[in-house]
């Protein structure tokens, strides 16, 4: 069975008949964006993986009552987000996550690398201060490279709202870096 060119609806029909290959194809199709979203709710990658696994299992259990003419993706991400919110409430906090994991450290020059480390640290602190939705939109679009429309569907927002969140997040991060800029300019003047 070549599942790559098969629509979500067909995979859903096969998976609800107990076809593991069809279910596996659905999992592989949405695994990457699912982990990215789950990581917004979970404090670690391990926690995010558990959330994703739970979401896929719940979706599979609910497949018999799912109308396959409806799109699978928004339905699945609704399950994932609900699980994520519940998990985050249990943790009593939103994950700020180890943002530094997503920041490059490839500078060869020690001075340049020190400068980058400072920038990364400021961005990390800036990200930690952002409201959860701004942080999620910024991370998913600017760090994970997902399309704005795709992120809108993943987070159940309009594309315009995602743009606004990204814009505000960038503005906040720009402010976080402004002090660093000013210090550098003063040093150059001396």
């Amino acid at each position: 069975m070549h599942v790559d060119n098969v629509s979500d609806g067909e995979l859903v029909v096969w998976a609800r008949r107990g076809d593991g290959e069809a279910f596996g194809a659905l999992v592989r199709r949405y695994l990457r964006p699912a982990l990215a979203v789950a990581w917004e709710f979970a404090p670690s990658r391990d926690g995010a993986e558990d959330l994703v696994q739970d979401a896929f299992h719940r979706a599979l259990r609910a497949l018999p009552s799912f109308d396959e003419s409806r799109p699978f993706r928004p339905w699945f991400f609704t399950i994932l987000r609900n699980l994520g919110r519940n998990a985050a409430e249990r943790e009593a906090r939103w994950s700020t996550g180890p943002v530094s994991e997503g920041l490059r450290a490839d500078g060869a020059d020690p001075e340049e690398e020190a400068h980058r480390a400072d920038v990364r640290d400021r961005i990390r602190r800036g990200l930690d201060l952002l409201p959860p939705m701004q942080r999620a939109c910024f991370r998913l679009c600017d760090m994970e490279g997902f399309d704005g429309v795709e992120v809108a569907e993943m987070l159940d927002l309009s594309a315009a709202t995602v743009r606004v969140h990204r814009h505000r997040a960038r503005a906040a991060l720009r402010d976080a870096l402004r002090d660093l800029n000013d210090t550098e300019e003063e040093e150059e003047e001396k």
């Binding site: 279910f23 695994l31 982990l35 990215a36 299992h57 997503g102 920041l103 961005i123 760090m143 490279g145």
Partner: peptide, 21 residues
């Protein structure tokens, strides 16, 4: 300044998918 924090290794994704399935 940014790169994805999601793993690049294809084997990671295969293993995770296999675990879920």
């Amino acid at each position: 300044q940014f790169e994805s924090r999601l793993p690049d290794d294809g084997r990671y994704w295969d293993d995770l998918a296999a675990r879920i399935v």
